[in-house]
């Protein structure tokens, strides 16, 4: 009787322990550094977090060329884990894919690849602004105003201003969507993942036990 009570108590303790582990496991995860970066206008915006939701405060930011590994910009995240800087001109000129690394210290590090095509459309609005005044009548109108036949002198300038205004407005409108995307892109560990992992562990040891028992059976 006493023995029965003891085993029952043991079982309930184990079950309780398991329950506590599972429940407490739901909202909180170990520290992986998540990085998300996007271009807005001529700036790169970077956000970084330690899973689940702690911003990387004063983390070291390194923006480098993916291919050569040359570091273009270094910086530090603010208290909200954010960092913004202008897109490096040489990156725009050479269409470099940018590798963005955030180091949180003690070996914690995350990265994000910002491909050239992801930031170039944003920068394109600004880049032609420089060559346009020097060559006003040749290239720009051909590209912008091909269907409209009257070659008015004021039109290229208007088109340019319009395009800039539109891209600014679009960027403004898209900013929250991009932040939302950033949230979604950060894969959070779910309870399902954890239970799956536990299943794997038990499965692996179960297999091991099976093979051991076979070997013992033979000898």
């Amino acid at each position: 009787m006493r023995r029965y009570c003891l085993t029952a108590a043991k079982k309930s303790v184990w079950a309780g322990l398991l329950l506590v582990l599972l429940v407490s496991a739901t909202p909180a995860w170990a520290h992986r550094v998540l990085v998300f970066a996007y271009a807005e206008g001529q700036n790169i915006h970077i956000e970084s977090k330690l899973v689940p939701d702690t911003p990387v405060k004063e983390g070291k930011v390194l923006i480098s060329d993916k291919q050569s590994g040359k570091v273009l910009i270094t910086g530090q995240t603010d208290a909200l884990g954010k960092f913004a800087c202008p897109i490096p001109p040489e990156a725009v000129a050479q269409r470099l894919d940018l590798l963005i690394v955030v180091e949180a210290g003690m070996g914690h590090k995350g990265e994000w690849l910002l491909k050239a095509e992801k930031y170039l459309p944003g920068a394109a609005a600004g880049v032609p602004a420089v060559p346009a005044p020097s060559a006003p009548a040749t290239a720009a109108p051909a590209a912008v105003a091909s269907p409209a036949s009257p070659p008015a002198t004021a039109q290229p300038v208007d088109a340019q201003a319009l395009e800039e205004a539109v891209s600014r407005a679009v960027a403004r409108e898209l900013a929250p969507v991009k932040e939302m995307l950033a949230e979604l892109t950060m894969h959070r560990t779910s309870l399902t993942d954890v239970i799956g992992g536990l299943g794997y562990i038990l499965g692996i040891f179960g297999l091991w036990a099976y093979f051991l028992s076979k070997r013992q059976g033979k000898s």
Binding site: L21, L22, S24, A25, A28, W29, A30, H31, L50, V51, P52, T54, K57, A104, G105, M106, H108, T189, V194, G197, L198, I201, L202, F205
Partner: peptide, 19 residues
């Protein structure tokens, strides 16, 4: 114990610079 380790190292308490 392997399973306990697996779960325990996931549970993260926000203490110190990296938790």
């Amino acid at each position: 114990l392997s399973a306990a380790f697996f779960v325990a190292t996931l549970i993260h308490v926000p203490v110190g610079p990296v938790g």
